[in-house]
């Protein structure tokens, strides 16, 4: 579903991604962890085609993000770390706009928006302008917008930040469900307990270098993911 090969991205002298290679298969919840400034957001943005990269290749569902970004974006959804959404629209108008952009049919959009808005308890606020939404409500709206067009791959940057416990629980369930239905999820997080429970595979990045990558069992071994992460950080200090 998502093939990252030898991805390299530099900001001047700083390397945010150094020869990264990752493969995310359909059905997998793939966690991406690392310290602040390790290169997680850069990698996720490069996968979405909103950040250019210096070397390597990224393919989504067999299409190159460089050569055919539209085909890639048709099957992807992105939830950023900070949901800066169009504040001049109401929630429902925003969702309708997203559906228009992805070419979602009338019946499908009505069904999915109703389903996910009810699930995340946002239905009552959909007529409100986004400018009146709290951070958590905007995050929920971004999640509903991502799910509304039934993407094969969802890329999420710290998706649990700002969500209340119930919404956080629902999101984890939905992530699992998306993958059980053949989709894939690639997300960054600092909440290692969540990653440990939710992820099938995990990649650890430090200073732009991939220092661990594999199934959860392979990466954490006999310890917890937190201990394994701290050990890896120390080893590659």
């Amino acid at each position: 579903m998502l093939d990252i090969r030898h991805l390299t991205k530099r900001y001047g002298e700083k390397t945010a991604g150094n020869d990264l290679t990752l493969h995310i298969s359909p059905g997998a919840v793939y966690g991406f962890i690392g310290h602040n400034g390790a290169g997680k957001t850069t990698t996720l943005k490069a996968c979405m085609g909103i950040l250019s990269f210096d070397a390597g290749e990224i393919a989504v569902d067999g299409h190159s993000i460089k050569d055919d970004p539209i085909a890639c974006k048709k099957v992807m959804a992105y939830i950023p770390d900070n949901p800066d959404l169009y504040t001049f629209m109401s929630g429902i108008k925003y969702l309708n706009f997203v559906c228009d952009m992805y070419g979602v049919g009338k019946n499908d959009r009505e069904k999915r928006i109703a389903q996910y808005a009810d699930m995340f308890e946002l239905t009552g606020d959909l007529a409100q302008p986004v400018s009146a939404y709290s951070h958590g409500m905007r995050q929920k709206l971004a999640i509903i917008a991502a799910l509304a067009h039934n993407p094969k791959l969802i890329i999420m940057d710290e998706p649990f930040v700002g969500l209340d416990p119930k919404a956080s629980h629902l999101l984890k369930q939905t992530m699992r469900q998306v993958c059980d239905e053949g989709g894939a999820i690639f997300f960054s997080t600092h909440v290692l307990e969540v990653a440990e429970k939710l992820c099938d595979k995990v990649a650890v990045i430090k200073n732009g270098n991939l220092i661990a990558n594999g199934t959860m069992e392979e990466v954490r071994g006999d310890t917890s993911l937190e201990d394994a992460f701290l050990e890896l950080e120390e080893e590659h200090a």
Partner: peptide, 23 residues
């Protein structure tokens, strides 16, 4: 403002972008 479920209007991406800019 109370939200009332109703029929949603479907537009082409180009029209949706224009309407977004006007809004």
């Amino acid at each position: 403002i109370q939200y009332r479920k109703g029929e949603m209007r479907v537009s082409s991406p180009r029209t949706a972008l224009l309407v977004k800019e006007l809004r």
